[in-house]
Amino acid sequence: MSDSDLIKLYSQRILALAADIPHLGTLADADGHARKRAPMCGSTVAVDLRLKDGRIAAFAQDVQACALGQASASVLGDVVLGRNRAELQAARDALEAMLRDSGPTPDAPFDGLAVLIPAREYPNRHASVLLAFEATLAAFDAAVTADADRNSRAG
């Protein structure tokens, strides 16, 4: 990879997002937790969340990833509160299509992911870019499963 490729890939906006990731940390009383790892690069993202009425009411993330993965987590963290699973899945799928198939930028409120368009040319980074979304979806599913288990024991 040439120096100009690196400069294009790690633009100032990507680096700014990576330096200011919302909701860093953990939630002690999370409804759901998940940790995902990108095997090719070793990036990891762990997510804790609480749900209310099928939407994310509280969110925390621990992001150990390259600047691209961090930027993706930053955009997600900025808009994740109040989102339901369908919205998150649609954003994740649109992000993957944007990267792998030169698809359009994800719809608002996830349109900030457009900053990651240069990552299209680096397939080995795609898993890291998708990681925060995949961990969030897995944590969402874990919360729903835990709630169903509690309800079945109570009933």
Rank of each mutant, 00 (worst) to 15 (best):
S2A: 11
A94M: 03
A16V: 04
H126R: 09
L116K: 02
L113Q: 04
E121M: 12
S74M: 04
Q89K: 15
V47A: 07
G42W: 09
L51P: 08
F140A: 00
L88M: 05
F110L: 01
A114V: 07
R83M: 11
K8Y: 08
D111L: 08
A34W: 04
Q12N: 14
D141V: 02
S74F: 08
I7N: 04
A154M: 10
A73L: 04
R92S: 13
R92K: 11
A46G: 06
A28E: 09
R13W: 07
L76Q: 00
E96T: 11
Q64T: 14
S2I: 10
A65M: 05
L68H: 04
A30R: 09
Q89L: 14
A18H: 06
S4R: 08
R50P: 02
C66S: 07
A148C: 07
A146D: 09
D29I: 06
S152R: 14
D3N: 12
F59Q: 10
L81W: 03
L76V: 02
R55V: 03
E96C: 13
R37A: 13
E121D: 12
S2E: 13
Y122Q: 10
A73F: 03
N124E: 15
S128C: 11
A143V: 04
M1Y: 06
P109S: 05
I7P: 00
S102M: 11
I21F: 02
A108Q: 12
D93A: 12
F140E: 07
G25Q: 08
D53S: 07
L76M: 02
S43N: 09
